Amino acid sequence: MAQIQSMQMIENKPFPPRKQRGWNWILYPFVFIFVVMATSAAWFYLTASGTAYRYMIADTLITSQHRDLAKYLIGQSELDKRVDDYLNRFNEMGQVKDNHAINLPNKSNKDVEVEAIEGKGYKGHILYVHNPKMIRVVTTSIVGQGEQILDMVKRTGAIAGVNGGAFDDPNWDGNGFKPAGIVMSGGKLLYKDVGMEDPVNVVGIDRNGVMVAGRYKPSELIKMGVNDAVTFQPKFIVNGKGLIKSESDGWGIAPRTSMAQLKDGTILFVVIDGRQPGYSVGATLYDVQKILLEKGAVTAANLDGGSSSVLVKDNQVINRPSSSYGMRYLPTSFLVFDHPERVHQSNIWEGIDMTHFNSSNKPF
């Protein structure tokens, strides 16, 4: 009987009221999220590793059409300073002089090869051109508008090609017709927006097949016998040594196109895909420098990158351009020909008032 009463008392005893448990169980996830966010913010802004990562993201934004967003990471004044610092550093790197020797025997090897490459966070390709004299700068053929690299290759009968130099792209809405700096093709200065005695960063090849990169006056380029050249920067390998000293100076993570030369005269074009999570995010210039130093490059310089980066061979796009709208329309390209001596490049800009085309204030 006592046992029955005891069981009844247990059965009739009310459960602890829910209010005794409080609302803590609901708050726990929010507290956890707050702690994680606070800890992440402290790491992001207050530690050396977090600050380095924050500036890496800012540099990545600086090279994209979302440059202004970088101010939310480092502030507007620091953003302006960072852009100026890069521009000044690139100019300094462009003034480092080459004194290496390129062995240019009779280049009967006309092989043009593509090698797939892969690294941490990126995928890309290297185009090898064993005879540097097979390379020419080709320009758009459309008055008032740039041209896609694939169309340039098909139109001219080229073996292969990559995107070329800088162009004015106000608000990243330009049509690719107006170059920035200079354009040389076949030994002729086709375009310049600077004076003949004003130095500008260039990437190109002289009449002997030797790569030329750095900061030169247009008058110097003509005297040096430069055959084909466009404007871009920086030059980052000189005399077989890298000028970019660390990942933090690698100008962010982005799609890349760069040009280099080996001691035997072979020209390498590196094209890295980017802005495609799950496939290839992109690479820093420090990454590209490491790739090219491992290949034995004695000279290397950066070309236009981002959504401009394109590699074409045998009338096919080899890489994966980052723009969802397809290949960009560009003013210049480096194309490879079986018979470069037959290539006659007209001056598409001759007689055109280029002030009609808005210029960009962005140096990159």
Results as ranks from 00 to 15, higher is better:
V143T: 14
H339L: 07
V210R: 15
I102Q: 01
Y128W: 14
G94H: 06
G174T: 07
G282F: 05
N175V: 15
A158V: 07
Y28D: 05
N208M: 06
V31K: 11
G351F: 12
L46T: 05
M7F: 11
A58I: 01
I318H: 07
I318R: 12
Y45P: 08
L79V: 02
N302M: 12
N315K: 15
N106V: 01
K71M: 12
L268K: 05
S359A: 11
W251E: 14
D353R: 08
A283P: 04
H344R: 13
K313H: 02
Y279P: 13
Q20C: 06
S359F: 03
G204T: 03
K133R: 02
Q8Y: 14
T47I: 04
R328H: 12
E341P: 00
I159V: 15
W251H: 04
V31W: 13
R89N: 10
F30D: 11
T60W: 09
T140W: 03
Q289K: 00
S6E: 15
L262I: 12
T257K: 03
A254I: 02
L127G: 11
M9V: 13
Q261S: 07
W25Y: 12
V210H: 05
F32T: 15
Q148V: 08
M134P: 06
V31S: 06
Y128I: 08
I318G: 03
W251C: 10
N361Q: 11
F34Y: 10
E247G: 01
D151Q: 15
V202C: 06
G252Y: 04
I182Y: 03
T39A: 10
E220R: 08
T140D: 09
G242D: 08
L46A: 04
R89T: 14
A300V: 08
T39G: 13
T51F: 03
F34S: 14
A300L: 06
N24G: 14
Y53E: 07
I62Q: 02
D173G: 14
T332N: 09
D98S: 14
G174R: 05
K192S: 12
Q276R: 11
D228K: 00
D273A: 04
P105C: 07
I117A: 01
N239R: 10
S308P: 12
G274P: 10
H344W: 09
S219T: 08
K120N: 04
R21G: 11
A300D: 09
V203L: 00
I222G: 01
E197C: 01
I142S: 08
S219R: 05
I291T: 11
L268N: 01
K178E: 02
G195R: 10
K13N: 15
A41E: 09
E350I: 07
P218L: 04
D228T: 12
D173H: 13
Q65R: 14
D173L: 13
V238W: 05
A297H: 06
V343S: 05
A283E: 04
I348P: 09
T257G: 06
W25C: 05
F357W: 15
G214N: 05
G124T: 04
A180I: 08
V162C: 09
K223F: 01
L150E: 11
N131G: 00
D206H: 06
